[in-house]
Design a protein around this nucleic acid. Structure first.
Lengths: 105, 105
DNA sequence: ATCATTCATAACAATTCATTTATATAACGA
DNA sequence: TCGTTATATAAATGAATTGTTATGAATGAT
């Protein structure tokens, strides 16, 4: 099995990493910028970025002493494609979810 | 943070558990039926099912000595909703993904 | 050359995870 | 009540994960 989903989903299972990814929707950012909002050490963030890179969720390029990270949408698209198989089952539940989110329950 | 995504994504990060979920798309199935295709011990599957239950991906009911499991689409819908935020970024990449899948690369 | 900045890597401890074997529990049928 | 079937739980183990502090490496500026 050519399993690129497992590492990607494992990477996304961490709230810090999801927050980093969220930030990257706004565009490229340096490791330092990405680390700033968090209360954990710089090496910890560096590791998170390495995990995300390994999972194919982000890419990076050098810019002087900084390392600029960028969202790599491919893996998210794969997850989306994986969800397609469940789309039929999900469709019956969208209303319920919408209602729940609306009620902020 | 009311984080139901983390456990769900962590649960889905395991190929065995994704395969179990896949099987459940066809409908309700007993723990034994779900365990059959795999080469790992019964307790291991039982634990996988417990993890999936804890993550809210499945529910179960008793049927005599058997325990019948069923897909619980709510969490998958939440993941789908989470992906919505990335949908704009993804859209630019669907063609590329489709091409890749078509080439069976 | 030296120094400051930005980031990665090493080494370590604590925790969590996936699995196994062995055993317990729950429900049914004779 | 006893045995069988189906499944869960316990205990143990090794591997992976997440965080820390300390240190190294790459780049640019003086």
């Amino acid at each position: 099995m050519n399993d690129s989903l497992s590492p990607a989903l494992a990477a996304l299972a961490d709230p810090t990493r999801r927050a980093i990814l969220d930030r990257l929707r706004a565009g490229e950012a340096s490791a330092g910028t990405l680390a700033a909002p968090f209360d954990i050490s710089q090496p910890a963030i560096s590791r998170h970025l390495k995990v995300m890179t390994g999972a194919g969720l982000v890419t990076h390029r050098r810019d002087g002493t900084r390392r600029m990270f960028r969202l790599a949408p491919h893996r998210l698209a794969e997850i989306d494609a994986w969800l397609d198989a469940y789309r039929a089952v999900l469709e019956a539940n969208y209303q319920r979810l919408d209602a729940l989110l609306a009620k902020d329950d």
